[in-house]
Nucleic acid binder design. Sequence first.
RNA 1: UCAGUCAAGCGAGUGGUCGCAGUUUGCUUGUGAUGAGCAAAGUGAGGAAAGUCCGAGCAUUCUAAGACAGGGUGCCAGUUAACGGCUGGUGAAGGUGACUUUAAGGAAAGUGCAACAGAAAUAAACCGCCUAAAUUUUUUAGGUAAGGAUGGAAAGGUGGGGUAAGAGCCCACCGGAGUUAUGGCAACAUGACUCGCUCUGUAAACCCCACCCAAUGCAAGGCUAAGUAAGGGCAAUAACGAAGUCUUACGCGCCCUUCAAAAGCGCCGCUUGAGCUUUUUGGCGACAAAAGGCCUAGAUAGAUGACCACAUAAAACAGAACUCGGCUUAUGCAAGGCUGAUAUU
RNA 2: GCAGAGGUGUCAGAGCGGUCUAAUGUGCACGCUUGGAAAGCGUGUGUGGUCAAAAGCCACCUCGGGUUCAAAUCCCGACCUCUGCG
Length: 103
Amino acid sequence: MDHRLKKERQFSYIFKKGKRANCSLFTLFSVPSKFQCYKIGYSISKKVGKANKRNKLKRRLKEIVRLEKLPKPFFNYVLMARPGAAELSFEELKKEIVSLFKK
RNA sequence: UCAGUCAAGCGAGUGGUCGCAGUUUGCUUGUGAUGAGCAAAGUGAGGAAAGUCCGAGCAUUCUAAGACAGGGUGCCAGUUAACGGCUGGUGAAGGUGACUUUAAGGAAAGUGCAACAGAAAUAAACCGCCUAAAUUUUUUAGGUAAGGAUGGAAAGGUGGGGUAAGAGCCCACCGGAGUUAUGGCAACAUGACUCGCUCUGUAAACCCCACCCAAUGCAAGGCUAAGUAAGGGCAAUAACGAAGUCUUACGCGCCCUUCAAAAGCGCCGCUUGAGCUUUUUGGCGACAAAAGGCCUAGAUAGAUGACCACAUAAAACAGAACUCGGCUUAUGCAAGGCUGAUAUU
RNA sequence: GCAGAGGUGUCAGAGCGGUCUAAUGUGCACGCUUGGAAAGCGUGUGUGGUCAAAAGCCACCUCGGGUUCAAAUCCCGACCUCUGCG
């Protein structure tokens, strides 16, 4: 099953209606859905860095989400990164994201 | 040893576990069409993938020819599919040198511009110098571009002769123009002879000359549904058609909306290509030719991450998006050659 | 991915080869006006270096080169910002 969000409309819907959870470098939007499988999208703006930095950050975020099994079923998420997020190491990222999902 | 200069080459290895994206094979299962799931095998970013600055392929615009406008290039020869690139030369400039840089045609086809300063800026008498006359403070007329002052630029330069004072007026050297000989494919170089030689700079100002260029970019464009479909508007020797303008030929009615959403990639274009590599041959070289071997990303919210081990395992700039050839910029290493200085032998 | 536009004092914005590089508005400071303010009027005002200070001089129109006697302006290269195209 594919757990990625891909459509422009879904992103704009979640940004509008979702509940926010903040920390210094990330924002998590969450919205309840009808389906059992969760969906998660990643939004990383150009201010974070150049193409290779954004790519690497996204891969790491995907890896953390996969290993820790954070998202609950019947929910859709968008994880947004702010400038500076690309400078963290893998372990630091892990702490940030886990605490964010607990909120 | 220090300083410099040229610069070949390399730029995250190997094995394992989990995870991601194509390909092939097998099994299961579908659509109007493309497909989807599971398992195994094997593959998976760069020297700049970047900037988008040039040049091509490829695709579309019914088609074709010409003129004007517009744009580009600009020493010579070669190289290439092509180029504004590259290679080898020539001239010029910089550096003690190795070496580096170079938009380097034409100002005698024409036009424009040259602020301020200065007497005068493309033609000249402000001061000065000399001669003559008047007057004896100086003024007037003429000669003169050697000196002063201004400027980025002042009428070829330096020295000597000459002269009332001066002046290519005359001479020597340098510079310039023309003719010619030799060498070179050529740019050009060297020499000889002639001419005393008015004619600033700017063409990265307009322009002239020579050569080249249609425009738009894979978000091009095509396929499935979907084509002689339905509706509306305009028009009759018209209008439309290469997308700036015009002419000629030629073709043909032209334009808009809706039926279709899933679907801003559902599928094709999409990776075998001016491809990579080894050897030999030709060439100073860029490069070319021949023979052998190889198949090496193809995504579409856009595939490479995490952990462990190997003696250490750390590291810059940085991520393909139709594809090539260059240029430019960012950046970690670095063999070796050469130059200058110092020291020792 | 492709195509295009721009960068000038604190801010906005003209100038697009030449006198002293920068009009105008805004902001800021001071003065006049007022019982006090606002508005209005007038004057001044970019940054850095040199200097004890003022005046003067020099440099700076995103940055680095080039053409020219002279460049914010013309040419080349970089950096940054913004816009359009399904």
